[in-house]
Design a protein around this nucleic acid. Sequence first.
DNA 1: TCTGAAAATTGTGCCCT
DNA 2: AGGGCACAATTTTCAGA
Lengths: 154, 154
Amino acid sequence: MIDHIDKAILTVLQEDSTLSVAELADRVHLSTTPCWRRIQKLENDGIIARRVALLDAEKLNVGVTVLVEIRTAQHTAAWLKRFCEVVDGIPEVIEVYRMSGHIDYLLKVVVPHIAAYDGVYKRLISELEIFDVSSSFSMETLKHTTRLPLDYVS
Amino acid sequence: MIDHIDKAILTVLQEDSTLSVAELADRVHLSTTPCWRRIQKLENDGIIARRVALLDAEKLNVGVTVLVEIRTAQHTAAWLKRFCEVVDGIPEVIEVYRMSGHIDYLLKVVVPHIAAYDGVYKRLISELEIFDVSSSFSMETLKHTTRLPLDYVS
DNA sequence: TCTGAAAATTGTGCCCT
DNA sequence: AGGGCACAATTTTCAGA
């Protein structure tokens, strides 16, 4: 369903989606029309979910990443629904996972500095009934990519 | 330096960068030329870092996210350098943070299923001298966005 | 399914306000 | 700064091989 040419196209588009179809076609050794049709198909199939601009976190003054481990007091569907609504409404919270093991939820939060995290923390504990919160601060981002591996798809 | 019109432009582009300049200009109540000039400036200033295609993790068969906490045996610059090289070379590892506190590094890894994580784990422990590894599996992604908050920039 | 070219749309620069 | 207009480039469609 996805051959090596599609993978080549996706590899390029995951890095840079500003290239013209003609330039992209060149790189994958195709001419523009077939390349364009493949891109169209990848979009229709939802393989390409969206195209977005990635902004510079430092320049937006949100250079500090905080990982927040949360344990809930109530394991109910209602609590989960409320939890989703609350984290959805906090723009500093950019990722939320429900985890296996002793940590119930893990959040990734971006803020200008460690002190600014306090506002997000207070908002979480005031809007939600939480059993335990543990926050770890990232000192340095060593790798950060939106590029997913294409090795497992066929 | 970044006014509310720039923020409006960035808000749209963080969601969808496929819009034409004319359409984007419409949405921020500007005509195309000044809108285009603002976009140009945001790119030159590096506020807009890049434009990429975001792919569907499920459809690429990497629907399982693993959070890996690593403690190192050696706190040396050489070890860190080697560590960066190794994680850089593993496409399943998409984020790596150096943390404060008792966890030295945190990795975000994407794989098709929990069993497939074993390959990444073995690669990590074979290529690096590691004191302790603790892996947690995400059962569900409740929120995941590349949209950074624009509330802290001026 | 590819190539090549035409038609439609969009990006880019110039000049004016 | 913003707006209007003209031209360049690119996307998208459509013919033929």
